[in-house]
Design a protein around this nucleic acid. Structure first.
Length: 852
DNA sequence: GCAAGGTC
């Protein structure tokens, strides 16, 4: 019997598709990666009986990244990112997706791909084929691998897809490869360049990353565009005639308003003369407010933001949680129409006993209205509740999102809101005024979607045709036009959707990005107000190359990519062309960055003006400025150089000591009272002097052979907690505090309280540790024999034991080494002892290495 | 420390 492997895009879909195709007979087991399940049954494939295995991936298997040194910000020029090699890497290594698929594919004869029917899905088809290519023979052959094309998750559609299997479309997949490569190269090149450029010049930028991206930047552009409209807005005065009749009722003027005072005055003077208004006509009509379409992702995000005050990012996190707990259906979908066979009444029935919706659910059940027809995008059914919940089952916001989804669902099956509008038309000396009353006839869906309730239920108009109504008062009112408001998050989502920026899944990510990077702030009513940084960035792009911030940039790119997808253009040619265009744009941007910089200059303070004088530069001997704002930096305004500093903590001047290599003053970094600390040279920290010293290293990682602060001279033993680190004597807070700190992990051992001096000897203990000499003031010596100075091993010398801070790891170590005492000098090379620390690297070998 | 796109 042949075996057919079938793969969906996510675990939930594999389960429901398997259930449909097996007529509910599939058995399920968890895959070895813990995330995916495998559903198995026996059925018929190509007229023979066959074993089916249905599993899934979790989105993309792999993602694109740069190779090796091109991932380092310091080892390459951003322009290189347009031409450097790239490689595919596991998207989520812990899922072990390729291994999982390969293991399930063993022994399979056919592959049927049930990935989502869009370009990303087509791309994942090829990722799946790659993953199983060593396990399924001829996986690229059209007699082995098939593509199921479905447009709804319904039995009819799915079984039809199974009966009319097609082949994966490589062109569509390649267009996604191209998009990935372009996004990566463009985004990273611009981001690295502008981040380094502006961080090297300003001290008070409120973001530690100045990112650029083909989606996030136009998204920011929308917010700044509205800001500009507000700034440029000039209020205009206008006038209108306000008539009040008796009984008290203000009429609306048909001319609404007039922008010339003289003209308005003429009308005012005319109307003012009259005592009566004549009712010329009274007309009525029924109006409707339509029940909502079935709920999709974008609408959920918009309503959460505008109605519940919950941002799209958080709203989607909540929706996903509700989904995985089985309370709602899959929350990422564009579709706004229920599948034809969807059991709407079944869902409604879930809520008949609910305290919250019971009455509404029963009413709607008895007065069931067919939902409005929306769009079927062929992805997933609209978002609906799946299970009844009570208020007490969730925290506040989760409840509010769930409550919204339920009410929206019931709303789609309710009647439209209906009201009667009656308009009376008045004539006053030829001028027309009106009065309209709106009377609710049927609250319809707003009974359950109460926030949309009819607000202006008024008394019906009392007027009849031909009535003469007494005019009580006539006024000429002056007013001014007002500026627009900042974009609401909900407006922004609509704009992004309209311009094709991001997808339903990525829209909240982009919005989150521009807030996290401090380009916009979320104000009252979830309105997005750009920050100075956001404004300056967008205006800067507009000065240099407006296309960089235009929403059309993404769609133009998509157009190019579609040529690949449709097979009308060659993948290589399109990609090469697009990369070249953006490479030139990037070059132009770099050479003209001063245009953007002139905007930064006005808004931010230069490094030279920020921070405090701190320590001396090794090149010019002048004091450098210490900028403590994130990211912490030292700036030498004379040399115009910026040196980054360790993240967090503080870097104080270290006794005016100097690095023997470059003459820079040493700093002592400390992450706090009981945290890590080490000395470092700001120059070496940014430009490691030795090949075995990585960037961002302190002196405790420096292998300088003779410097008194180096690892070579202060290293005591290999770390007792981690594999790769060395415990190094840390004198930065001596003589108050002496300690050993690991140069790799967080391990710290406090030693020799109140000691005058601690030094690391040349000799080693037989356990492999360097011996240490400690000296105390005579009156403070802790030793029983009254000696004020002793040499021994921190770990083995009994007299040192009480002077080493109790530490679990130290305790363990003592058990392994009961011997105490002095050096075992002359006893030959220390035997390798299991469970005992390895000695620090051999000093002579290191010395030799430098002089080669 | 970068992008955007899937999804857990």
């Amino acid at each position: 019997m042949k075996t057919v492997l079938m793969v969906a895009e996510k675990p939930s879909l594999a389960a429901s598709l398997a259930n449909i195709l097996s007529n509910g007979k599939a058995t399920s087991r968890k895959g070895f990666n813990g995330a995916c399940s495998v559903h198995e049954w026996v059925g018929t494939f190509r007229d023979s009986s066959a074993k089916f295995k249905f599993t899934s991936v979790c989105g993309h298997i792999s993602g694109l990244d740069f190779v090796g040194k091109f991932n380092s910000w310091d080892k390459c020029d951003p322009i290189d990112l347009f031409s450097c090699p790239t490689e595919k890497k596991d998207a989520t290594p812990k899922l072990k997706m390729p291994q999982f698929l390969a293991s399930e594919a063993k022994g399979c004869d056919y592959l049927v791909l049930w990935l989502d029917c869009d370009k990303e899905g087509e791309n994942i088809c090829f990722e799946v084929m790659d993953a199983v290519s060593s396990c399924i023979r001829n996986v690229r052959s059209t007699s082995v691998t098939f593509r199921a094309k479905f447009s709804a998750i319904t039995e009819k559609d799915i079984k039809n897809a199974m009966a009319t299997l097609q082949f994966p479309n490589e062109n569509e997949s390649r267009s996604v490869d191209a998009r990935q490569e372009l996004d990566l190269r463009i985004g990273c090149a611009f981001t690295r360049f502008q981040t380094k450029f502006f961080q090297g010049r300003y001290g008070d930028l409120d973001s530690s990353l100045i990112s650029f991206g083909p989606c996030q930047t136009p998204t920011l552009g929308f917010c700044v565009q509205r800001h500009d409209e507000i700034q440029q807005f000039k209020p205009e005065s206008f006038w209108y005639v306000q008539v009040t009749v008796d009984p008290e009722q203000k009429l609306e003027w048909q001319r609404v308003r007039i922008f010339e005072k003289e003209v308005a005055m003429i009308f005012y003077n005319m109307v003012k003369e009259q005592k009566e208004a004549i009712v010329e006509s009274v007309t009525s009509k029924d109006n409707f407010k339509s029940r909502p379409l079935a709920l999709n992702t974008v609408e959920l995000m918009r309503s959460a933001s505008s109605g519940l005050g919950i941002g799209p990012h958080v709203a989607m996190q909540i929706a996903e949680k509700l989904y995985t707990q089985g309370y709602i259906s899959y929350p990422r979908t564009e579709t706004t129409t229920y599948p034809t066979n969807f059991d709407l009444r079944g869902v409604l029935k879930l809520f008949e006993r609910s305290n919250e919706y019971g009455d509404e659910a029963k009413n709607v059940m008895n007065d069931f209205v067919q939902p409005k027809k929306g769009t079927d995008c062929g992805d997933h059914p609209p978002i609906t509740p799946m299970k009844m919940a009570n208020r007490s089952d969730f925290d506040g916001d989760t409840w509010r999102v769930y409550d919204y989804i339920v009410r929206h669902f019931i709303g789609t099956l309710s009647r439209d809101l209906k009201y009667k509008s009656t308009t009376a038309k008045f004539i006053i000396d030829g001028e027309i005024f009106t009065s309209t009353s709106n009377v609710l006839i049927d609250a319809g869906y707003t009974k359950v979607m109460t926030w949309q309730a009819f607000g202006k239920n008024e008394l019906s108009n009392p007027y009849n045709k031909g009535d003469r109504v007494l005019i009580k008062d006539v006024k000429l009112i002056e007013s001014q036009t007002g500026p627009p408001s900042y974009l609401t998050e909900s407006d922004l989502i609509s704009l992004m959707e309209k311009h094709g920026i991001g997808t339903d899944a990525s829209i909240p990510v982009h919005i989150n990005n521009i807030t996290q990077r401090n380009y916009v702030s979320v104000e009252a009513g979830r309105r997005l107000k750009p920050t100075t940084l956001g404004i300056v960035l967008v205006h800067g792009y507009q000065k240099i190359d407006p296309e960089l911030v235009l929403p059309t940039m993404r769609s133009a790119l998509e157009k190019q990519l579609n040529l690949i997808a449709h097979g009308t253009a060659d993948f290589r040619a399109v990609l090469k062309h697009a990369i070249e265009i953006f490479r030139l744009k990037f070059q132009y941007f770099v050479t003209n960055i001063t245009n953007m910089d002139s905007l930064f200059e006005v808004s931010f303070s230069s490094l030279a003006d920020s921070g405090k004088s701190h320590s001396r530069c090794g090149k010019c001997r002048r004091y450098m400025k210490y900028i403590q704002q994130k990211p912490a930096r030292l700036h030498c305004s004379h040399c115009d150089e910026t040196y980054s500093l360790p993240v967090g903590g503080i870097a104080r001047v270290y006794r005016e000591l100097k690095c023997p290599l470059d003459d820079f003053e040493l700093l002592a970094w400390s992450s706090g009272n009981k945290g890590r600390s080490f000395p470092f040279c700001p120059y070496c920290y940014n430009n490691p002097p030795f090949p075995d010293m990585t960037r961002a290293s302190g002196c405790n990682n420096c292998t300088h052979p003779t410097c008194q602060h180096s690892l070579t001279n202060l290293g005591v033993s290999s770390c007792i907690e981690c594999d790769k680190g060395v415990l190094v004597l840390d004198c930065t807070s001596s003589p108050k505090n002496w300690k050993l700190g690991c140069n790799s992990c967080d391990c710290i051992i406090n030693i020799f309280d109140d000691a005058l001096k601690v030094t690391v000897d040349e000799d080693t203990c037989e356990c492999g540790s360097q011996l240490v000499t400690v000296a105390y003031k005579q009156e403070k010596t802790p030793f029983a024999d009254g000696d004020d100075k002793k040499t021994g091993c921190i770990f083995c010398f009994n007299e040192f034991m009480p002077l080493i801070e109790k530490h679990k790891a130290v305790e363990n170590r003592r058990l392994n080494s009961s011997r105490g005492g002095r050096s075992s000098r002359g006893r030959g090379k220390g035997r390798p002892n299991r469970g005992r620390p390895k000695p620090p690297k051999d000093k002579m070998a290191q010395l030799a290495a430098y002089f080669v």
